[in-house]
Structure formats: C-alpha cells, structure tokens
Amino acid sequence: MKSFRILFTGISLLFIVLVTVPLINMILTADPQILRSTLGDREVTGSILLTLRAAFWATLVCAVFGIPLAYVLARWDFPAKSLVQGLVDLPVMIPHTAMGIALLMVYGKKFFLGRWFGELGIGFVGTEVGISLAMAYVSLPFLVNAARDGILAVDPKLERVARTLGASPWQTFFRVTIPLSWRPILSGAIMMWARGISEFGAVVILTYHPMVAPILVWERFEAYGLKYAKPVAVLLIILCLIIFASLRWLAGRNQEL
C-alpha cells in the first residue's frame, strides 16, 4: 500500500516536471530587455491578436455546428453512429499539414466549394477566414467530444420530465440540457480555442500571410535564429497560460450547485 502511493506520487511528479521544465526554463531565461522590445513590435502583437481572434471565431462558429452534433451523438441512435463519431475524431489522427492540403484542394479556387465562396467574396487562401477555417478543422473534436460527454452526463429523464411539464424540444434543450451541460461545453470550447491558437501545420498550408503567432515564431527562427524567435515564443506562452488559467477558473467556479 505504502509503496503503491510512493511510486504513483513519484511517477506523477516526474511527469509534471518533464512537462513544465521546458516552459519554465524558457520564461526564466528570457532577457527582459528583449521581451519588452518584442512587446512593442507591431508585427508580433498584431500576429498574436490575429491568432487569438481567428481561433475565437473558429470556436464560435464551430460551437453553433458542433453543439447540435454533440447532442445528436449523445442522445440519438442511428445506423452509422460510430462512423460519424470516427469522422469527428479524424482530425486528431491526420497530420495537420495533410489536413491543410486537403482543405486547400476543396476551399481553393479549383474546387466548386472554393469558387462558390469566392463569388460571395469569401476567400480562404491567404486570409483571416482561411486561418479560422484551418484552425476549426483540426480542433473541432475537442469541442464536440467535450460537449457530447457533457450532454451524456445530463440524465435524459430530466429532459423527459421537462417535456411532460409542457416544454417543447427547443425549450427543453435551452432550459434543461444546456444549463446542465454548459460547463463541459465551455471547457471544450476553451480547449478548442487553445488548440486553434497553437495550430501550425494546417494554417501554414492555407495561409502563410497574414502570419499567425506560431508561424511568426517559426519564421523568426528560420530567418534570424533562436535569439529572435525566443521572445515571441515566450510572449505567446505567457499570454496563453494567463488566458487559459483564467478561463479554466471561470468555468470551474461555483462547481457545487
């Protein structure tokens, strides 16, 4: 019993250290002088803002489509359900550069979908919309799976009771299902957003310019070396940690009803 506890505590601690050491090391070894000047670099701040914004839109639009899909997966039984579930998980497995190329083929000008949107004035190559699209495709599973698990955790009996008390399916969804599952849904949205911010592979294929932060880090590393890439990376990490921690805190607050 005692050896069990010691071993598991030890393994967990080791793991946490391995995960956090690179981040902590990077932040501690950053030159404050350069960090400050990087903060004033319009290209850097613009790129970070673009990244946050594009990931936000991707998450918001996907919430509109992803939550109903999550509901369907949680509540209904239909023949190809496991296939649909597999499709949702697919982006996790496919290399993101491959995903980017697939998106380019469909949303580029050579395919009817890309042309259609083009006629509506929406282009995906080299635009902010393209960035959001690439982020959405690769990070959607985080939102859909979290929302599905959240909805699964709501006792279907509560929804049934609501119906017998006079609620339509819509009213039941908005007054019972969502109020009881918003926490995991929000947590999934945060995960999706965070995953979108960190996306490189799919975005770089679809839209190199304007540059999202991960691409900017890459470009500075390629063109000027580690010394100039590092402050941007540090800035990105700090910002992400702050936002992530505060949203997590928000989502976890008042956990006890």
Binding site: K157, V161, R163, T164, G166, S168, V176, L257
Partner: peptide, 20 residues
C-alpha cells in the same frame, strides 16, 4: 400528440428534480 400537449403529470421514482 407531443408530450407537452398532453397535460399529464409524471412523477418518476427518483423524482427527476432539475438540479440547476
């Protein structure tokens, strides 16, 4: 007829009160 239009009162074994 949809359940919301039947005007029947259902009480379940575990009462299914809305926890929120």
């Amino acid at each position: 007829v949809a359940p919301e239009a039947r005007h029947l009162g259902v009480v379940y074994q575990d009462y299914a009160l809305f926890p929120h």
